[in-house]
Structures are given as C-alpha cells and as structure tokens.
Amino acid sequence: MKWHLVPARCFLEQAEHAARWQALHAQGAASCLLAADFVAPLVAQFAGGAELLAWCDRGGETVAMAIVAPAGRGSWATFQPAQAPLGLWLQRPGEHPERLLGGLLRALPGFPLVVGLTQMDPMLLPRPLDGPGLRTLDYIDTARVTLAGSFADYWNGRGKNLRANLKKQRARLERDGVATRLDVLRRPADMAQAVQDYGRLESSGWKGKEGTAVHADNAQGRYYRAMLENLAARNAASVYRYHVGEQLAAMDLCVEDGDSIVVLKTSYDESIPSSLSPTLLMREEAVQRLFDEGRFKRLEFYGRVMEWHLRWTDEVRTMYHINYYRWPGLRRLHAMLEARGKRAESGPATQ
C-alpha cells in the first residue's frame, strides 16, 4: 500500500486525477457532494495553495483518495471549506480507515502527529470503533426526510401548528388574490442567473450586512455557478424558485444523486411581511412535488439540526470526525486534555 501526494491544483490541471477520483467515487455509496464535478470548483475557488491531493494504491488499484490541508501545528485534515458539507475523503468499500490513515500520516510532509477526517456521514462511512491510534468525535446532528409513501400521509404526520399556520397563510393569500408559483430550474444555461438572483435575495438580509452573502462576482458566487453548471450538465442539479405574486420570495440551491436530493443553500426576501413564511410555503410545495415524482428516496439538509428542521422530520443522525494519531499515547493524552477542558467548562460540582 502506497500513498502518493501532489498539489491539490493538479486535480484541476491533470485530467487523470479527477478521473481516478470519479472512478473511486462510483465504487461506493458516496454522495453527489463528493463527486469530482462538485469537488473541482471547491479547489478552484477556496484552496489557498498548501492543500494536497492524496491517493493510495494497492496492487495497482486506488483504494482511497483525499484532499488534505495543514490544520495547525503538527496536524493535517481533510480540506473543509464552508461550502462543502462533507470532508473530502473517499475509500473503497470494506477498507478500514485506521489502516489507511496510518499510511497517509506517514506520507504527509513535516512529520505530523495527527491527521483528521472532518464531517463524516455515518450513512456513507459507518462510524469506526475507537482504536489504539484512532478516535472519533461527534460533529453535528443533521436531518433528512425519507420520501416513502404518500405526501398526504407524510403531511398528516407533521405537527398541527405547522399545518395550520401554512393553511392560514395560503387562505390569506387566496383572499387577497395573490398567487404563488414554484419553478424548478435544471438547465446549465439557467444557473448563472439563478446564482445572481440567489445572491440578490441573500444580500437583502443579515448576510448582506455582515458581508457573507453570495454574490455573482465573489468566490462563493463563482463556486456555486460552476458547480451547479457542472452538475446540471448531467441532470444532477436543481434550483427551486418561489414567487409570491410577481415577487421572487425564496430559493433553494440543490444537488442530486441517484437516491437523494440535497438542499445546499436556502434564502428568502426579508422584506416580505413577517405574517408570511415564504421558505415554509416553498418547502411544503417542493416536498409534495418530490413525493409525487418519486425520483428520490431522501431529502437531505446536511446542516446542523435547527428547530425548523424538526417541523419537517424526526429523522436525525450524528455526523462525526476521525482523528488518527502517530502514537497511541498521544491519543490518550488528547482525550484526557479534552475531558479536563469539559470539566472546567462545566464548573465545580455543587453539593
């Protein structure tokens, strides 16, 4: 088993690396969030130059690949821009992360003491047991909706408050003669305008004030446009646009694979009166359409579970990180220091 390392930009400049990545991706239960055409724009827009593309060969076959970056003194971790819901790690089914990470740690420059895999999904890579050199840590809880059965049955299982609230909003809009419309864009040619419109919505709210909104001409905007165009070219991207009257009120940016559709980004026009919830209205119609179409098994959110997620589903799982240490004693020391820090945060015990 041998690990190879090249600058991450080679993923963009040398076609054989993206082809190798995609071939490994096709072997497992990997998500569209780890497809080569999702990953390449991440590298193009957010890599700073220190990142490495790593792959492991055994017997002439590639068994693991990753994009990794320095993560502080003596450590490396999977490259993790905010726009990537999952850590950029692939492995062939049946391989154990501990053995693979041991080889990667020894191959990385600078004699690192620890290498980490960030934001792992137990649906894609079952959470391994802790070992002499390996330790897992909880990351966040995330939610999904299983798209099985009828929408009516699913909707009747939602809370009374959600159903009554949206019914009341729709009745008010109907009384006022205001129509709503849900459009779904799928063509590559539509994605540039979709990202521009999304940026306008996001810039109208608090993200615009904080300078973190998507814009067509910033790195985020360039990333989302390139990525959505890439995936739309193979019918694996969709943008949901919701109009209240003639006003564009809310949008979802989504990517798709054979089993799931993932909502990557959601925004709405914050100038709309608070008596209306355009995102909730859009979500109801979008979910109904997904049930009716029957194309997907799951709707994935991949963000930290929020109160509003739990209005739509009670399906929650815990994502996790993996740390692999050069020496078992270092793993034990790290765990001990973390436990001591938690005790200090909780304060002294009371009698």
Rank of each mutant, 00 (worst) to 15 (best):
P128S: 03
P128M: 08
G133V: 02
L134F: 09
T136C: 12
D138I: 11
D138N: 13
D138C: 10
A143S: 14
A143D: 14
R144Y: 15
V145H: 06
T146Y: 11
L147H: 06
G149Y: 03
S150C: 00
S150I: 00
D153L: 00
W155Y: 13
W155V: 02
N156S: 11
N156C: 03
G157H: 08
R158E: 01
K160T: 12
N161T: 15
L166T: 05
A171E: 10
A171D: 09
R172E: 13
E174Q: 14
R175A: 11
V178F: 04
V184Y: 12
R186V: 14
R187I: 04
P188H: 09
P188A: 06
D190N: 10
M191W: 08
A194W: 08
V195Y: 07
V195D: 06
Q196V: 03
D197W: 07
Y198F: 15
Y198D: 03
G199I: 07
G199P: 02
R200W: 14
L201F: 07
L201N: 04
L201A: 08
S203P: 00
G208S: 09
K209T: 10
E210P: 00
E210R: 13
E210Q: 15
T212N: 01
A213I: 00
H215W: 01
H215A: 00
H215D: 00
A216K: 01
D217T: 09
N218Q: 04
A226D: 15
N230P: 06
N230G: 12
L231N: 05
L231Y: 05
A232S: 11
R234N: 06
N235F: 09
A236Q: 11
